[in-house]
Design a protein around this nucleic acid. Sequence first.
DNA 1: CGATTACCGTACTGTTCGGTACAGTTTAGT
DNA 2: ACTAAACTGTACCGAACAGTACGGTAATCG
Lengths: 230, 230
Amino acid sequence: MKELLNPLEADTHVKKSDTKRQAILDTAYRLFRTQGFERTSVGEITAAVGGSKATIYSHFPSKEELFVECMMAAVENYMAGTLKHLDAASADPAVALYDFGRSFLSFICSPEQLEVRRLMIAEAARSGTGKLLFDKISVLRSHVSAFMSAAMASGTLRRDDPLLAADHLGALLEAEMLEPLLLQVREGSPDEKEVALAAKRAVAAFLRAYSPARRQLKPLQTRSKQRGVA
Amino acid sequence: MKELLNPLEADTHVKKSDTKRQAILDTAYRLFRTQGFERTSVGEITAAVGGSKATIYSHFPSKEELFVECMMAAVENYMAGTLKHLDAASADPAVALYDFGRSFLSFICSPEQLEVRRLMIAEAARSGTGKLLFDKISVLRSHVSAFMSAAMASGTLRRDDPLLAADHLGALLEAEMLEPLLLQVREGSPDEKEVALAAKRAVAAFLRAYSPARRQLKPLQTRSKQRGVA
DNA sequence: CGATTACCGTACTGTTCGGTACAGTTTAGT
DNA sequence: ACTAAACTGTACCGAACAGTACGGTAATCG
């Protein structure tokens, strides 16, 4: 019953049990996250998941490809964690932005996501894992950008490059907490209250920066043209 | 003549030649930056600097401490690169912020600084190197915060937490470029024109967010209290 | 000059790692 | 029950690694 879920996933190897494969992926993912790629040995994964090293190498051709599959699962998880907070668009864009910002920041600051972020940056050059995550982030960016575009069309935000506005919102959200967390100067994740306050300050600053201009201090129609990635 | 420059630096080892020590540090720093800690072997450093492995181990007790010394030099370099653009305060705070933002962003986006940043995040847990960098960043933050404080006192910026304003400015500056560069989705550093445009957009958004309020939409005296690091 | 000192080159030790071989054991489909 | 596949345990290989030992060389300084 469980083998017919997808017959074309045998691109690399033959078909094997799926539960074992998933158990290996889960354990390897956890160890890679907390220890990094080089400091995690296949023997350690074997001991943690239980079983034999040969089993791992019957499911994955190398440690490298096992790592890449873990990272692909990680970015899928990233998307599931961020995009689900984007559909509930409140009537007031201010509270919609705040709700999104708070849950987004809370997700970003979770220990697992911090570990993934560190790992992605550390191993960005390896097998193009960095691009893997960035492409997923781009999807999120374009979603936020669509929200911005709509808010600009309805007049609740000033007319500007919606993608730029999305980048600025994301940066403001991360401004207070991300750097010390990535550099591990604090021990654990911040609590929800701290996150909520940082998100509140970030959204407040964003709304001040992107509220509609009261007077035409600057020409409104200047849309910056093709600023980088589409 | 050169041995009397500092007689108390022999805390770890005896006094040796300084030029060789510096050559080892420079080479190791470059290799660590481009390849990371684990992927750089002492033999590789030896081959690149010329000489023998025993010489390295006569200057540094272990690979780990050699790495830490490299990172300390890196953060010193970081401070020298960022703080020097902060003194030239123009009359108009807008152009002062823009000048600082552009040079700061250009420095941050240089290949060497990107490599250092990746390395610091990757090896943040090792010997507290992450805290090492963050403490230096905090010095920069407090300098920018002092500038903000002065601008708020003179009425050119709205009254708010100056440290928060500094964080928001820094985040806006990095908003467009840092993430793809850290994840290595682009090949090299952006050119000066791109950096200047991103800085211009960031400073424009910042000035919109932190220009003095025209009317009292929100109470002005609400200073957020003790937001994290002093 | 003589002696101390830094440096070099090479070989070595002990360990760890990624990956394989293989024989035995469990599991699942029919 | 029979069989084929997946799985396990252990042992192994070759390579790479951090760090050491040691004899030889070049430079520095009295």
